[in-house]
Design a protein around this nucleic acid. Structure first.
Lengths: 345, 345
DNA sequence: GAGCCTGCGGAAAGCGCTTTCCATGCGCCG
DNA sequence: CGGCGCATGGAAAGCGCTTTCCGCAGGCTC
């Protein structure tokens, strides 16, 4: 039915081995003459290699796998794009799995990718803080690595993986300092769930920044929620309600540690007719493509999302070195219309 | 190195054939007793099937491929998510390729997916209008289908494919009528490149809607551009500049036939301090997740993006029928803050 | 109680490719 | 001018799985 290498070989009048060597690159060389003949035959017959067969014979496929929370989330979408492009440049296909940050689904995805004998697994979601979960995932990944698979992480997932180190903490600190410099003294922070390492890292960064100005974060001004628009919205609502109930003054700056959350924050404030940045300044994190189009344009911390994905692929495909490799992705504060100096009291 | 089915069979004291039948479902049945023994052994040894080997033996893999313009674009991201979820539910992995709407890259992607023996290829990008390009792609897809591959399209790519019919034309018409009903009489339209069928379909819909009110679209009020933020922005700028130069009155409503474009339009208007919807109403198309968070919240046409992706998978996996199957995805006009009745002249 | 059919386990033949391992022919050195 | 080594083509052995095809045993019918 399909044209096989055997057909090509016969058509070109050479052996199967020669055809294989001519078409699918190999250590061994074939004279240009034969090689050309084989290529011509392949062309005439419309030969298309059977990737599964190649994967079986070579015991490694032409694919990479990506684990992330949700491709439809602009943050992950941008990373997925970077990975896909870099992979394509190497002649590889990428398989993306959205796990919604559920460790069980992540575990299952690792198993499937392992079964597929993907050449590398890229961990693009957040690492977890819960030991038992980490253990399970690491075990599954170890099994994969022992069979020759490569694992690279975007943002720290443990020192034993090649990783693209994302400046989460430093970026959050810079952003916070920037806002403090504008004059803000009462902050509120909306971070992700405790179980996610990036959420904790970014939060730590904010605390660093505050500390530089001898500021602290009152407990009621720290909200944890999912990194989603609705999460951000609900968290903002809670902050507002609690401060009002307690009679405490409202924060003048709220930092949502993900742009998606920040979008929810803006929505809630708009609903309550609280002006941004007039009454409250709002900042996000990630600089997703549409951040600048929000109302008002969102101040945030830019991460080179596409590059991070591409770097992860590069690491995964580089010759394995003694020590895990690390490359750095630097954060950059981008101030736009959603932040301003606080109103005079 | 890796645990193979053979190892499992030996450990369980059964033949390779029995182990295969017990673990990886088959037409033939195995007594529950043996079956349990095999499963236990597989568990103990940590057996993970070798997907490429299975694909080779079964001559079809456990993957589906998706062709789209850009996963980082929210429109496609949402579709990709729908496809991924539906695939996962069937135990399949999905391979997404971003082609930036370049037919050559699309062609190459089809070949790679074909080589991978993916079970189905889902065409999620726009179909093209140029005959030679269409021909090439159709040829590659035919070759794939002849070898047992399934192809399904999201939005029309030709009557010979199973397709998720997206109500592009009807949706655009409804939106247009809605705006006309608000009192708008001078429209401008920003559509996609001529070579893309969805762009033409949506444009046709707008024209339908206008015709219902005996309205026409002056040539200078129709701009074609890429479906990107920058494209939208530039197009809006051109419209404004041209009408000003010609001394003609400004349109009171501009319809961008993709939300991403609309985001650019809003940016340009903001830059020029033209109030929306005060001076000009703006509407988009797709209802991407962040549409409601733009400034101002964008009126648009909602498409069930995730469902469309899932439906495409469902079609692809259904038993092939005599006639290509078609399911419909209905559009729904969503009016938000970016549109209003035009100001009195 | 003999003959058959049915149900199920096992042997073995591939699936399409890569890659050793030979075999052959050539160039080159002494 | 002979022999050695290198370069290169070909035969064949897998890679790990599915699936046909056998063969056996047990239960049924008459």
């Amino acid at each position: 039915m399909a044209v096989t290498l055997g057909d090509v070989a016969r058509h070109a009048g050479v052996s199967l081995a020669t055809a294989s060597r001519a078409l699918n690159g190999s250590a061994r060389s074939v004279t240009e003459e034969l090689s050309a003949k084989v290529r011509a035959s392949a062309d005439v017959l419309g030969y298309l290699p059977n990737a599964p067969a190649q994967a079986l014979a070579r015991s490694t496929g032409a694919t990479v796998g990506v684990l992330l929370h949700d491709v439809a989330d602009p943050y992950f979408g941008a990373i997925a794009r970077g990975v896909g492009d870099a992979a394509a440049r190497e002649g590889l296909l990428s398989m993306v799995t959205s796990t919604d940050g559920d460790p069980q689904r992540e575990l299952q995805a690792i198993r499937m990718l392992h079964a597929q004998r993907v050449r590398a697994i890229i961990l693009a979601g957040s690492a977890y803080n819960e030991a038992s979960v980490v253990r399970q995932l690491d075990d599954a990944l170890s099994a994969y690595q022992e069979q020759g698979g490569r694992v690279t992480a975007i943002s720290d997932h443990g020192p034993w993986y090649d990783t693209v180190d994302v400046e989460n903490r430093g970026g959050a600190a810079s952003l916070t300092r920037e806002l403090a410099r504008l004059g803000h003294r009462r902050f509120a922070v909306i971070t992700g769930p405790e179980r996610m390492r990036v959420a904790e890292d970014r939060l730590a960064g904010v605390l660093d920044g505050l500390a530089d100005f001898d500021l602290t974060l009152p407990e009621t001004s720290l909200q944890r929620t999912e990194f989603t628009r609705e999460g951000g919205r609900a968290a903002m609502a809670r902050i507002l309600d609690v401060t009002r109930a307690s009679g405490a003054p409202r924060p003048t700056a709220v930092i949502a540690l993900s742009d998606i959350c920040a979008a929810g924050v803006l929505a809630e404030l708009r609903e309550r007719s609280i002006s941004v940045p007039g009454e409250i300044s709002v900042a996000g994190f990630d600089d997703i493509p549409l951040a600048t189009d929000l109302a008002p344009a969102l101040s945030t911390v830019r991460l080179p999302l596409g590059r991070m994905g591409a770097d992860a692929v590069r690491l995964a495909l580089a010759a394995p070195s003694r020590e895990p490799d690390r490359v750095h992705a630097f954060a950059e504060v981008v101030l736009r219309a959603s932040t301003a100096a606080p109103a005079e009291d």
